[in-house]
């Protein structure tokens, strides 16, 4: 028998306190306090435009790239603010990796795609690169499919393979947290299943936050689920509880498909 994980018992890897994110005058995320427990999967769900992707992108400061965006409140990584002087966006993003909705491999070879983060980090030793790349591709369950054509362009891979390559690329720099923004929304069911299996395996080593539109997916992959609505965090709890006995009416309406 497997034991059911208890989110509350786990240490907080990342945490936000009263986080507010604005685009100009408009608040996209309001007063969100949420904890990502260490080595667990947190699913962020909610209707389009509810702020869940914005929230996710705040965790590795990708929002900073959007003109006019500003954040207030606190974001902590291992208990320390990500805006404190010991970190900058570059350092933070090496520790908090990201996989995007649309797979975005570089128009380079498969090898160079995965090597990218390592090379910019200063690693150039061919042998070590090779080992780390193999390890990352294995972690992303892609090694067997591409090991004979590492020098070929990544653009020749299928959609699902490209997305797993992007995961491998993110894993290669050995982040502690992995943010996934609807990583399977553009994929067919078989490719989606592969990504979901992968998430299960990855959470042994990584803290994961995943934004998804797909309720079944949230139920299948996550330990904890947070429901966002109109920029606010309506409810957060163990996934099972959110999907079976939500405390809020709006959560129930959403997870049962009454709107969304």
């Amino acid at each position: 028998m497997t034991s059911i994980p208890h989110p509350a018992a786990s240490a907080a890897k990342m945490e936000t306190r009263r986080l507010e994110i604005r685009y100009g005058a408009k608040a996209a995320v309001k007063d969100v306090s949420l904890t990502l427990p260490d080595r667990q999967v947190t699913a962020l769900i909610g209707p389009s435009g509810c702020g869940k992707s914005t929230f996710l992108r705040a965790l590795n400061r990708m929002n900073d790239l959007i003109p006019g965006s500003s954040a207030s409140g606190e974001i902590l990584l291992d208990g320390r603010s990500i805006y404190a002087g010991h970190l900058d966006a570059v350092e933070l993003r090496r520790r908090v990796g990201m996989v995007f909705q649309k797979s975005n491999p570089f128009p380079k070879s498969i090898f160079e795609n995965v090597a990218y983060g390592l090379r910019i980090g200063g690693l150039s030793d061919r042998r070590e690169l090779g080992e780390r790349i193999e390890r990352s591709l294995r972690s992303a369950a892609l090694w067997d499919e591409v090991k004979d054509r590492l020098a070929e362009s990544a653009m020749g891979l299928s959609g699902g393979q490209q997305q797993r390559l992007c995961i491998a690329r993110a894993l290669a720099v050995e982040p502690e947290v992995l943010l996934m923004d609807e990583p399977a929304s553009a994929l067919d069911p078989i490719a989606t299943a592969k990504i979901e299996d992968l998430i299960h395996e990855l959470k042994v080593r990584y803290t994961i936050a995943i934004v998804t539109h797909n309720m079944q997916q949230a139920a299948r992959v996550s330990d904890q689920t947070a429901f966002f609505y109109m920029g606010e965090l309506v409810e957060v709890g163990p996934t099972e509880q959110i999907f079976t006995t939500p405390r809020q009416q709006r959560t129930e309406d959403y997870v049962t498909g009454k709107f969304g």
Binding site: R80, A84, G85, H86, D88, E91
Partner: peptide, 9 residues
């Protein structure tokens, strides 16, 4: 002490 950036950064 911790809030100080590292030399490489």
């Amino acid at each position: 002490e911790a809030a100080r950036p590292s030399p490489s950064m």
